[in-house]
Amino acid sequence: MKSRTRTLIIALIGFWLVVFGVLPILLLLFASFLGQDPEAFFELSFSLDAYRQLVDPGYLRVLLRSIWLAVLTTVFCLIIGYPFAWLTARLNRRTRMLVLILLMIPFWTNSLVRTYAIRMVLGTQGLLNTLLLHLGIIDTPIRLLYTDTAVVLGLFYLMLPFMILPLYATMEKFDFRLVEAARDLGAGFPATFRSIVWPLTLPGVLAGCIMVFVPTMGLFYVASLLGGARQLLVGNLIHQQFLNARNWPLGSATSVALIIIMALMLCVYWLFMRNLALRSHQP
């Protein structure tokens, strides 16, 4: 049964997704191949200059450093988040809901406000230093703010729920009797973890890593507020090229690089999941 209302609805959604979803990405790709003009945002001519600048050693070093910070954040989130998700999955239903809601509330609170809040804690006269001084752990305040450590701590603070939630989703379905069975058969903790728990929770690990790693690289305001003036994250580079240097082709090329990294990660995830599905169908 076809009606005008039905056609109209489908056309409207299709229009919106094509104009504001597909077209902008194609234009971004297009912009990365344009020539540069310091007076305007770009020059309408084909050029590979942006990609040449992208692999320029100076620029590339900042890019790699930013990727490194994102890797550190992701690993840190995984190490802290994995046991957290595991312990949560083993709680009874009521407590589990409470823990999940407590995880969701910061997630719903303005992230800029939270970044600003963590800066109050990390400052030389902030809560952390005051506490450590009082406890006699340190004699002089440690300089945390405007260091890479502060940036990673801030990114970790914002991104931890994004790691825990996918991990928890996988672990919730985990059959904990498998662990008991392995124990009964004489496997120690390392063997049980390596051959049962880790492989079975790997989908959650991969999903969590993607959910943390990709957005982390874009959080320019975290680096600006906690890391000082330097260009620390890919997001800062893009922000700089678009809003200050007005070099749109280079900004676009940097974003294309980010899209490629994301696509590669999704490919790995997809290949892994397909492999898993194939293996589980075999006898």
Binding site: P24, V214, M217, G218, H239, S255
Partner: peptide, 17 residues
Amino acid sequence: TLMMAPDIILAIALLVL
């Protein structure tokens, strides 16, 4: 894909648009 894409990509793609 729109949901998965990092904000910064969507931001500049829309700016260019």
